[in-house]
Amino acid sequence: MLTPGSPALPALTSEYATDPDMRDLVAEFVDAMPARALALQVALAEQRLRDLQRLAHQLKGAAGGYGFPTLGSAAGILESTLKSPGLKSADPAPLDRIRTQVDDLIALCSRAVAGPR
């Protein structure tokens, strides 16, 4: 079970944590993080790579807007890998890379905190 703000690594605080217009929205975004991480895990386990790419793309577009640019960049890296032409070959290396990148992204998701409420 993913716990927001896991104590193992420093928390990722939103850049907009103190923005009164954004505080509630950021909190909602962080609250939805476990569900998002689960969706990434399931898509990977079922090898639904198109869905995985879409999830990564949406996270890339949104995370920065909610004040988590590191999360957005990690999602962008995963999206690029999923789009690379090498993915269609029989070589298992890209799939291993994807697994690692999904794990990294989920780890980042688990560290996201909205900041003081």
């Binding site: 217009d21 949406q58 949104a62």
Partner: peptide, 15 residues
């Protein structure tokens, strides 16, 4: 946009 996050974000930013 197909992302609900973007809808929320844009609505807030264009308020």
């Amino acid at each position: 946009d197909d992302s609900p996050d973007v809808h929320r974000l844009l609505s807030a930013r264009l308020r």
